[in-house]
Design a binder for these strands. Structure first.
Length: 429
RNA sequence: GUGGGUGUAGCUCAGUAGGUAGAGCACCGGGUUGUGGCCCCGGCGGUCGAGGGUUCAAAUCCCUUCACUCACCCCA
């Protein structure tokens, strides 16, 4: 038997309703906030990711699905969306029509990591990017949108962490400070962190080794070393969040793994997820558009990990409303033929309708109707055909009534519609 | 890439002094000659992850390998 590729998964019919629900509420909210959908390809030139994410990052160094195509070009399966969105923004000159541009995209990303809970080699993201706005309130607005999305899905037990990574002027100074702090603490650091000290000292904040955590408690904080512009930018973000009543924690240890971030960064964490607890993350990337050959336009964005979100929602029992539907139990050839026509007619009336195409006993047909959770069953056999009226059974109340064969479909449709009062079944179809 | 745990029916799992496999659920049918859920009865269903070895005999012991899973790492 040929099986799934390691780290990949099928999203099964029992789960897709939840996925559709999550994606639909995401779309709805994003469009209310003025975002338009952009659909980008799954494959890009390798260079795009190397230049945007950063050649030294783990993602680029060891997690990308990269291959050479038949013409010798190096292509890779996108490990994240921002690079492609920026590429499209530049390529189609969106900035020329309107300097402010809000885009979202939904789809799969690929990273070749060792799979574990909440981490797959193909995973899905909902991605939002805002271009052309320097104002810190753009950052806050994006975070606001993100948290409203979580609210709307009724997620509990999540926390928002925010930080500022400074800009190209103040971050280098901080890195130097950090290096001098670490210079005579080699014994307290794990082997990984010793390596990081030279390559990317900020990452040491992320280490979970107890001794590293211990030594880092005394380490200088980036938030104390921000230049005045970054300082006031970060203050304004916080003020705006406070005004919007969005709870958050500032976390000067929040470091992100992509090189392009500047100033504001944020993450949404959910303890219930286990080790892979980041449901969403993002930040500002003011130099990226220019670095990729575009105009000097700023950007802010976030990515939501849909797989992890779904995992959280599946843990919090929540029934998605099901549409009422009909089952036709037909007995004998004559009735089966009639029923076959009716089934199609009901479906054309936007009624989910099923019947049993094998001529089985009424008992087994009723069992099937029950298993399919039909709210009504229409029973018709030779007897009903002769008498000119079928039997309509309400499966919840067990009430049965006779319905004339003439104009049967219209009659049953209006019957069911009027019986189901309240609820929003009406506007669902 | 490194470590731990686990692989027996579609699903959840029993099954060690080695003797060629069981339960519950699910599925199909019957009990009700035309009425679902509960109950009862019957049926279907397994290369015991794969390969090799020891043995008269291996799900069980040994070796190898693969997969899944959790954690490190990293991130959504």
């Amino acid at each position: 038997m040929i099986k799934l590729v390691r780290g990949f998964k099928d999203i099964l019919p029992t789960e897709t309703a939840l996925w559709q629900y999550v994606e639909a509420t995401g779309r709805e909210l994003l469009e209310d906030f003025g975002f338009a959908e952009l659909r980008i390809p799954i494959l890009e030139k390798t260079e795009l990711f190397a230049r945007s994410i950063g050649a030294g990052t783990d993602i680029v160094e060891k997690e990308m699905y990269t291959f050479t195509d038949r013409k010798g070009d190096s292509l890779t399966l996108r490990p994240e969306a921002t690079a492609s969105v920026v590429r499209a923004y530049i390529e189609h000159k969106f900035y020329a029509k309107d300097p402010v541009c809000k885009l979202y995209t939904i789809g799969p990303m690929f990273r070749r990591e060792r799979p574990q809970k909440g981490r797959y080699r193909q995973f899905y993201q909902i991605n939002a990017e805002v271009f052309g706005l320097h104002d810190p309130r753009a950052d806050a607005e994006l975070i606001f949108l993100l948290m409203k999305f979580m609210n709307r899905l009724d997620l509990s037990g999540i926390v928002l962490h925010i930080n500022s990574l400074g800009c190209l002027k103040c971050r280098p100074h901080f890195k130097d400070d950090l290096k001098t702090f670490l210079v005579n603490r080699s014994e307290q650091l794990c082997s990984d962190c010793l390596r990081r000290r030279d390559e990317n000292p900020l990452r040491i904040f992320d280490c979970k080794v107890p001794t590293c955590k211990e030594t880092m408690t005394d380490a200088p904080s980036i938030l104390d070393r921000l230049c005045s512009k970054c300082r006031s930018h970060f203050n304004t973000v916080q003020d705006a969040l406070n005004m919007s009543h969005i709870p958050y924690e500032t976390n000067h240890r929040l470091v992100r793994g992509l090189d392009y971030y500047t100033r504001t960064t944020f993450e949404v964490l959910a303890g219930a997820l286990g080790a892979q607890d980041a449901v969403a993350g993002g930040g500002r990337y003011d130099g990226l558009v220019k670095a990729l050959g575009g105009p000097d336009q700023p950007g802010v964005g976030f990515a939501i990990g849909v797989d992890r979100l779904i995992e959280l929602l599946a843990g919090q029992v929540q029934g998605l409303e099901k549409r009422a539907h009909l089952f036709i139990a037909a007995l004998g050839d004559r009735a089966q033929d009639r029923a076959f026509q009716w089934v199609q007619d009901f479906r054309m009336q936007r009624f989910r309708t099923e019947m049993d195409l094998e001529d089985r006993s009424l008992k087994s047909q009723m069992r099937r109707a029950d298993k399919l959770e039909a709210s009504y069953v229409l029973i018709v056999g030779d007897r009903e055909l002769d008498e000119g009226a079928a039997v309509l059974r309400n499966m919840t109340t067990k009430e049965q009534e006779r319905v004339p064969l003439q104009g049967l479909v219209g009659f049953v449709v209006s019957r069911i519609k009027t019986t189901i009062t309240g609820r929003n079944n009406e506007d669902r179809r």
